[in-house]
Simulated scan of single mutants.
Amino acid sequence: MISCRPHYLPREFSSRFFVAVYLPPQTDAGTKTALNELYMAISKQENAHPEAALLVAGDFNAGKLKSVLPHFYQHVKCATRGKKTLEHLYSTHRDTYKALPRPPFGKSDHHSILLIPAYKQKLKQEAPMTRSIKKWSDEADAKLQDCFASTDWKMFRDSSDGIEEYTTSVTGFIKKCIDDVVPTVTVRTYHNQKPWITGNIRTELKGRAAAFKERDSNPDAYQKSRYALGRTIKQAKSQYRTKIESYYTGSDARRMWQGLKTITDYKGMTM
């Protein structure tokens, strides 16, 4: 097993792990023991590097990696020795490679396999989403407090015929106050964007890019911008972790399930 960090790598991957495997022809007990050893080695790296891409390739003979790691995908569908598929290629993502049989090397009785990259980056899989959000600030909070403090709430109760009309009128008024006071901004999110990315990080990224252009004339400013970006990213990750962990302290089952899916990267069953 080797780890590498290519110069160019899709943003959704932090690094790549390549695992070369050979399982000799043996009894079912021996194959099971070998697969368990392979499971332990791969799981250790998955836990240590959850955002890494793993490729497991080699001669498996009678072994099947999916029996111990069911979330891996097998990409070799063609026969590699006679009518049997002994050479396998597994990865953690669907449609990573297209495998084509090729003539064997020298006097080998196994076909060689040509792997054609077929993976499509998350950035290119779907168009970015544009949505409108409220930009809250201390100034907006103060204006809302003044608005609510000067409101005659008794008026809504006196003019309502029942609890439902009373509730609708009050919530409608609150929504109108928020729309009038809190500014709305349009943000664009990409599918390969990390969930902990915030506006502060984007600001620091722009500052670092500007300092990078002037790094020859002002290297200290570039160094400070790098440190500032690192601190902001660390703080954003800590805040996001606290947010996810807070889902387990409340009584909202829906939020708790969202936290579980985020932590485990659960995508649901595909038919």
Rank of each mutant, 00 (worst) to 15 (best):
K213L: 13
R5A: 03
L86H: 04
E51K: 08
Q45I: 06
P103N: 02
R188I: 15
S67T: 14
T232V: 09
Y73D: 02
K84V: 05
R157G: 06
R16P: 01
L55C: 10
L229V: 07
G30Q: 08
P183F: 06
A34P: 01
A210W: 05
L144S: 08
L9T: 01
C4V: 14
P128R: 09
Y227G: 06
R11Q: 06
S3G: 03
R188C: 09
G199D: 14
S137Q: 00
I201P: 04
L54E: 02
V181L: 06
G199Y: 05
N200I: 11
H110L: 05
T167S: 14
K154G: 15
T264P: 03
G230K: 12
R255S: 12
T186Y: 02
Y97V: 15
F18S: 01
H111P: 00
K134H: 13
V181D: 05
T96D: 03
S43K: 10
F173K: 11
S15C: 11
E37C: 09
I201S: 02
A211L: 08
S3W: 05
M129I: 10
I174H: 09
S225W: 07
Q145P: 01
C147I: 09
L35V: 02
R231F: 01
A53F: 08
S238W: 04
P219A: 08
G268S: 06
R231K: 13
T262H: 15
K83I: 09
Q145G: 07
T33D: 10
A210E: 13
L65M: 07
R202K: 14
V170K: 08
D59V: 05
S159C: 09
K143H: 02
M129Q: 10
L23A: 07
G162P: 00
K134S: 12
S217H: 09
I201Y: 05
S112A: 12
W257Y: 14
I201Q: 02
Q45K: 09
P219W: 07
I233C: 07
